[in-house]
Design a protein around this nucleic acid. Sequence first.
RNA 1: GGCGACGUCGCCAAGUGGCAAGGCAAGGGUCUGCAAAACCCUCACCGUGGGUUCAAUUCCCACCGUCGCCUCCA
Length: 479
Amino acid sequence: MALIVYNSLTRKMEPFVPLVEGQVHMYVCGPTVQDYAHIGHAKTYISFDTMVRYFRHLGLQVRYVQNITDVGHLLDSGEDRILRGAARAKLEPMELVERYMRSYFEDMDALGVGRPDISPRASGHIPEQIELTKRLLAAGHAYEVNGSVYFDVRSWPQYGKLSGRRIEEQEEGTRVAVREEKHYPEDFALWKKAEPDHILRWPSPWGWGYPGWHVECSAMAAKYLGETFDIHGGGIENIFPHNECEIAQAEAAFGATFARYWLLTGSLTLDGVKMSKSLGNFVTIKDVLKQHRPQAVRFFTFSSHYRSPVDYSEEALVAAQRGWERLVGPYLTVRERLIQAGLPAERSRTIEGFVDETRGNFRTAMDDDFNAPAALAVLFDFAKEVNTLLSREAPVGRPDLESIESFYQELVGDVLGLLPHAAAGSADREAGLIRLLIELRAEARQRKDWALSDSIRDRLAAQGVSLEDGKDGTIWKTA
RNA sequence: GGCGACGUCGCCAAGUGGCAAGGCAAGGGUCUGCAAAACCCUCACCGUGGGUUCAAUUCCCACCGUCGCCUCCA
């Protein structure tokens, strides 16, 4: 395994060596399902999806767990985000959660983000969270006050090891509003007592209440991946306090290393400012997909490294769309060529060699902390070579076309998820009809009936199908 | 105020101690009935000032600027 990753825990590039050879256990912080997912979520989850795809490409077995936060996420006012949303929409809290969770999966499906192997919900793991809290109490790392339980940060000297913060430094901070019942400002809630109007509540050894936000990740990761597992992912903005608290809880409770590698993605900004709930400046995935194809969003994500901050703009997405078209162009052409009969049957040594070389370069790029932009550059070089090859006089043989096609399917398709979805069912019929029109147009062109041939092309264009005439016939593409 | 990241062509962006990938845009050309696509050519000395070195965009220091976190957020 030549894969190197940047581990935020050690702040170094490190060879990635799974705990169990051949297996990757990976946990990524999922969304709080209280609103529609935005383009920042898209960046994060496309990035991790691509890591999973790449691991599988390398032949590793992956268990990918991503939680759904549907309880416990409080506003600074002390209000529960889910409850507030539900009250506003006049819905049951779980009705609200269900709505946005479905919407989230819809969006991810549309973006070609593979479903996690397990999508545990916080509300479905209350006993596990209570159990973890009990352990921490027993170990002396937590205390109970008035039916709430807090983690005792001062009992855990390693608190701050991920984010590089020393708790003493925070004391000068202007804003930490000391909650009366906490022993220390940095202590955080493991379990909160439910006030009378708080209807999301469960019974516990400390009375009716609900779990704090951070516990769910520690409890669920441990349950499905073990007390020690390989990768913990998430957005960099959650490094403190969320990720820091996760580590503290889990390691204090289990006495074992929590995640071994921390891979955190850079934030996405909109016009230079981070998109966030509180600022209300967010663009939803659904809105973006009304204007752009999902592959353009993925391409946009890959155009910078996953750890870099990225600024989103309409122009950037248009550029991504163009780039994507260029990248995928040769594949579409090759696919059309393969339909034709009478292709030469010879195999060319040089093409085989070039395909293998490119695959190697692609892996070198991805092995370097999933350097997708560098991987794209490799693929662009390949695309250019293929284009040159296809525009030569001598027709390319079937075996060569097939190896180009499968190269694309393997890397551009399976790993990066950038190929158009395969035609199936009624799409086959549509393709047949378009080819029929192309044939009729070819006959018109033979007769130099430019009026008819241009009319066919224009009217297809109006339907979102563009035609490109080449040496060996006409290629069609959909918008 | 504290912690962290970053500043590379008009825009996006990779990268290395030894003369800087790729994409978008732009200009010129080839091909084409036209168009589109494709192909060829052109297009940067890497924020500023010091230092280390035979040699720095790449290492160190300072400064300027941008962004993230420290409060909910992927």
